[in-house]
Design a protein around this nucleic acid. Structure first.
Lengths: 137, 137
DNA sequence: CCGGTTGTGCAACTCAGTTGCAAAAGAGTT
DNA sequence: AACTCTTTTGCAACTGAGTTGCACAACCGG
């Protein structure tokens, strides 16, 4: 993805593309995997954590990123590709490596569906496999 | 499950059954769903949070509970039923209600398996559906 | 150039969870 | 029971991730 594409994406979601925001969005493109706030903080030393916090909140509100549970204990943000501007859609499984702590998207693997018991109404599904990634095996 | 069973379970996992620990384990039996630390804190006002913290760490180490991501942003602990004393096993899906914030075990629904790409080595799988529970619909 | 809106950087704050430590409770021995 | 050693408990202090308040800077339309 080019930087111009990112800017387009942000505009399309009603987010003004400032320098900080572009850097943060670029971090997702560069790593190509869901990032935690602290990972972004480490990667972008020059950007204050308050800016990162507020930017992620904004991105989330505008459906530019969505949230998924970290394999460890927190949450991660993933750049939306197929999400519309008012609805999140994230249909692939994720893999959390217990050694390096990274989370990967396995984009080719759709989440298998299940049928819920009477009364439960699903909105979204998260499928997370924990184990060792190719680099850490 | 009777209180004597809980004590047996604890003994079997090498955990000395003190009054506090029995109360904490009972909370899981009573609620019959994964609990967060703060939920336990609320339910057992008389038990100090440091005791809860240390007890959960111990339970976890001895495979009496295992951990799963909270649908929200933290983690929850679930009493192991089928886990051996040195290995966790948790093969059913979970449901997180976005309104009341509770997490439910759907014990009858096994997690559908997927085949991972070359190089990824799975250890455990978590399948979490978010939505509205029967009480909150 | 001006005035209003939006974004930024710093410091202060919050809150869940953890840790240090001394007192209390247990368990085994004589 | 008295003694000693180990484990658990309760309190207070600490920690760290994340958020918020606020003044200043950047931006934008007229």
């Amino acid at each position: 993805m080019q930087e111009t594409d990112i800017i387009d994406l942000m505009m399309h979601h009603g987010v003004k593309p400032t320098a900080n925001r572009i850097m943060i969005a670029n971090a997702f493109v560069k790593e190509h995997r869901p990032l935690s706030m602290s990972e972004i903080e480490t990667q972008l030393e020059s950007v204050d954590k308050s800016v990162i916090s507020r930017t992620l909140a904004l991105f989330r509100e505008r459906h530019l990123v969505h949230v998924l549970p970290d394999g460890g204990d927190g949450i991660r943000y993933e750049l939306c590709h197929s999400c519309s501007d008012d609805h999140d859609d994230d249909a692939h499984i994720h893999f959390y490596c217990g050694r390096c702590g990274k989370t990967f998207c396995l984009e080719d693997i759709p989440i298998p569906e299940v049928s819920l018991p009477e009364g439960y109404q699903a909105e979204s599904v998260n499928y997370m496999v924990t184990g060792l990634c190719p680099d850490c095996r």
